[in-house]
Each structure stands twice: as C-alpha cells, then as structure tokens.
Design a binder for these strands. Sequence first.
DNA 1: CACAATACATAACACTGCTATGGATTCATA
DNA 2: TATGAATCCATAGCAGTGTTATGTATTGTG
Lengths: 210, 210
Amino acid sequence: MYCATMARTKDPKVRSLLIEKAAQMLRARQPVTLRTLVAGTGVSTMAVYTYFGGMDGLWRAVRQEGFTRLAARLDAVPTSEDPVRDLAALGAAYLSNAMAHPDLYRVMFDAGFDLEDPSAADETLHCLVHTIDRAKTAGRFHGEVDPPELATQSWAIGHGLASLAVTGPLTHQALVHGVPMLTALFISAGDDPAQCRRSVELGWQPPSPS
Amino acid sequence: MYCATMARTKDPKVRSLLIEKAAQMLRARQPVTLRTLVAGTGVSTMAVYTYFGGMDGLWRAVRQEGFTRLAARLDAVPTSEDPVRDLAALGAAYLSNAMAHPDLYRVMFDAGFDLEDPSAADETLHCLVHTIDRAKTAGRFHGEVDPPELATQSWAIGHGLASLAVTGPLTHQALVHGVPMLTALFISAGDDPAQCRRSVELGWQPPSPS
DNA sequence: CACAATACATAACACTGCTATGGATTCATA
DNA sequence: TATGAATCCATAGCAGTGTTATGTATTGTG
C-alpha cells in the first residue's frame, strides 16, 4: 500500500540539470560517466539514483529529451500552402537536427527505444501524418495512401540517411539524397512528378524570405 | 627498424575462435566482456591483447566479420535475367541478414565504421552497383542514373528499415515497406511502373523453385 | 646449442556503476 | 508547537570492467 505523505520533494531543477549536462557532455564528446556527470554540480552520485534509479534511467531520460527536442524542432517547421513542400521541410529538419546533435541522435536509437514515454515515436510521426493528410485532401496524393504507412516510410528514409551519416560512411553532404528519395516516394503516392520535384526542392532548403 | 625474426607465430585459430565466440555470445544476448569471452576457451585475457590489442580491436574485428558475412550473404543471392528483381532480392537479403543477427547488426553500425578494412562499405555496395549497371544496360533505368548514387539510396532504405526494426519501434513485419519504397525508387530511376512492381515483388520473396 | 624475440598466464591497477549506511531536512499529525 | 515518520542525499565500500606490469614458457634463428 502506497503512503502519500512525503517529507521532502524532489527538486525538478536537479533532474533537468543532470539531463542537460549529460547532453552537453555528449555534444563535447566527453565520456559521460556517473562520477564525471555529477562532478561540479554540487550534487552527489546518489542523486542519479534518487532521480533516475541509475545510469540506465538517466540514459532513458536523455533519449526522451532527444525525442522531445526533435518533436519541438519539427513542430517549429512553418506550414505553407503546399503540403508536399512541408513534408520535405520536415525531412530536412529531421536530418538537420540529427547532424546538429549527432551523439544525442545516436543515443536516441540504441538500447532499443527504451523510453520513459513510449509514445514518443508516435509524437515524432504525428506531424508527418498530419501533413500527409493535408496532401491527400489537397489532391496531391491518391486515395489509397495510408498516412501512417507513408509517414513510416518517410521516417525510414530520414533515419537511414541520418544513421549512415552520423555513424556510417556517408558524409554530411550525402544528405541531399533525401531530395530524390522523398521525391520518388511522393510521386509513388500519386503526386505529379514535375510539381513534386519543385515542392520537395523548395521545402528542402531552409525557408528563404521570398 | 622492424626486425622480421619471429620466435612464435600467432595461431589464427585463436583469433577466429574469439571472434566466433563473441558473435555467438552476442546472439545469445549474453554480456560480452573480456573475462566472460575468454572463459572456457583455455586462453587467457592477455590473448585478446596480443590478437586484437584490446577490446576495441576485438569489436572492430567483430564488425569486420559482420560485414564479411553480409557480403557473403549478398553474393549468394542468385542472379536472374531480371536485374530489377535481383535488386529487390538483394534488399530482401540485406534485411533478412539484419533480422537474423540483430545484435551483430547493431554492433556493425555503432562506433562509427571503425573497421580493420575500411573498404568493407564499398564491398557491400559493390554487388548493388553491379546489378544497377545491369539494369541500365538492359534499358530498365535511364541513362542519367548514377549507379553508386542509386546504390547508396537503396542502402539507405534498407538500413533505415533494418535499424528501425532492430533497435526501434518497427516490428519485423514492417519490413514489407521495402517493397513499395524500392519500387518507388526504381520507378524514379526510369523503370516502367507495372513491370517494376512485378519485378520487386518477385525478388522480394525468397527464390521459389519456379 | 645459445640467444633473442614472441606468446601469454598471473596479478595488480584505475575506473565503472551500484548499494549499504547514516545524518540532514521537511512535511503531517497529535 | 513538538514529535515522528518519510524522504533526500553525502560518504564509503563493493563487485565488475578494461588495461597494464611482470615473469615465464616457447620457438625460430645465428
């Protein structure tokens, strides 16, 4: 039986401070270990256990943070009146995020999606699905297109390129493969080839003030 | 100055034995550690250092072994008179290999392609490039197709799906996404849509004794 | 046959994440 | 308000990690 009385409440600042520092050390390519993590923060190694239950819990929280940031980045992609262009912009933002935080991206995808909130994957796909819906109602995609399915396929393209570029043999500039690959996928979903090419190329580069 | 005299020669059996055991423990989901690796083999922990220079070297060798097995598996894919069908068969073999040895596949792609022979990636792509060449000369793809480029894109599709299925939220059955994705890519390379669909579906499933 | 260079078993080292312990702090209740 | 219980967390120690020093056995070469 769980007793609700609490004598002391965890400080959420410490929690986010540790996650933040872990992400920062990851970015600086410093080895993130229990002792190096708490060094300089004033808190002790035990804090990691009261807040996360151990290093596994910390990494789980860091992964969650990675997906949260990714979702925020995708949500920040502006919406135009061309849904296919917006789809390409989402793909470009996905890859841009992965290349900006390569080590965080790598951490997000090892240890098999062991997240605090397992619906993070759905969240990531949500704006993709929504934009595909818009493309359908706009008549760009034909009726048999299943939005979650096409979103998954777009994700697989983005993740495949990001993964091969972050941890593999592809260079950063190889990410432009995203343009022909997404174009091919969207054409197969029913979009007009010429229009699709234009939309994807427009959405791929950052929104220019035209 | 290097002296060529040697008093005792390394036994290559020990080397492959350790790699084999590491792969086997990986498959059994047992933690592969220096001491558990040598336990029962008769050799001591120092053997890992004389043969691989340390655990990093061992993992490097394991990754190399993974790519070698992958290349062998791709080379074993039978060649038909339909190059597009063969391309799909290569993709299916790639995913099949990843799902048969998920932990080995994961090891292959972390630590950033730190391999003994860095040309392993090219080897993996070689049969893809060769088959794409065949498709070009057969008139299935138009002339502007750059074989290495299209091979990279096919690889990105395969790796994206494999990675999301091995370590991500995709289930094993989600690998059928490979069919529409490869079809879309090959159609964009110039193949006839209806013929392409037939070829990819034929190549996707294991070669039936027709 | 002697010598030198390699292979490798043993043991100790620094480091990892983790846990047992106890003191400090804070809220709920009498 | 004062007591008590529950929580946070700093300290210290533990088992396990990869690595390195040391010494011994083994083998090809002069």
